Simulated scan of single mutants.
Amino acid sequence: MSNDPRGRGAAFLEFWRERHLCTLTTVRPDGTAHVVAVGVTLDAPAGLARVITSRRSRKVGLLAGRGGLDAAGRVAAAGAGPRAAAARPVGSGGEQNQINSGINGEKAGPSAPEALAEQVLEPAGGGLAMAAGRVGVPVAVCQIDGRRWSTIEGLAVVRDDPGSVAEAERRYAERYRTPRANPDRVVVEITITRILGSV
């Protein structure tokens, strides 16, 4: 079947419009999977999936990964916007303190970076992943409803520019509900590379 969401048919597109909770899987530095409940929106024409979250969430900290931080423990963001000016050093809290609750883990955790404007992030295990000229961190999002299931794999970057955040919030409101106000909100933007599933 097609890895282009537009080529998967009406049932696939409708499944990703229905209100279902999803999971986002990233990889910890030790190679183990970090899987959390999130809301995901699909932008089929652009070949993107989006997750809104807090810049201080554990998932964002994992996406920043090795090489995504400068020597002072801040995210090194090229062309950083106004949000990047508020960068703070990463904390040293333990794994238990970094667990976030709620859909998309929007409660702040102490150990993830603050500034992420228009940045391509390095995976925790090493260098940037590339596929067909695209750069990002390998991730997967999945949703299940009875016998129907769908997994989207792709390359993730984290964005905090106002336009990207507003678009992600608009799409989230269409699929789920209007998200609560969060000045620390960022977007995990996933360029789709593979689609698996029963729909």
Rank of each mutant, 00 (worst) to 15 (best):
M130S: 13
R175P: 02
E174T: 14
L128T: 11
P89I: 06
F15N: 05
A112D: 00
A168C: 04
V141C: 05
R185D: 04
L63W: 00
G127N: 13
V35T: 15
E167P: 06
T53R: 03
G154M: 03
S92W: 13
A87L: 05
E106K: 12
M130V: 14
I144E: 05
N182D: 15
R55M: 01
G81Y: 06
G163F: 07
T178D: 12
M1Y: 12
G133M: 10
L121R: 01
G127S: 14
P179Q: 04
A46K: 14
P179T: 03
G109Q: 02
R6S: 11
G65Y: 04
L63Q: 02
G61M: 08
E18H: 12
G133Q: 09
L116R: 07
G65K: 04
A86W: 12
L21W: 11
S150K: 05
L48I: 06
D145G: 09
A173M: 08
P110N: 05
T151W: 03
V158G: 00
T25S: 03
G31T: 04
A156G: 05
E14T: 15
P113Q: 04
A124Y: 02
A46C: 12
D43F: 06
G197K: 12
D4F: 12
A132R: 15
V120C: 05
T32K: 12
D161K: 08
A129S: 13
A11M: 07
E169I: 09
V75D: 01
W149Q: 10
S57K: 03
R148P: 02
G136K: 08
V165G: 02
P45T: 10
A37Q: 13
C142D: 03
S198H: 14
V120F: 04
E122I: 01
K107F: 09
G154Q: 02
G127C: 07
V187Y: 03
T178F: 08
R177V: 14
L24E: 00
R50V: 02
R180L: 15
P29V: 08
Q143A: 14
V51W: 02
R19V: 10
V36D: 05
W149T: 10
V75W: 00
L13W: 06
P5Q: 08
A37C: 13
G105V: 04
H34P: 05
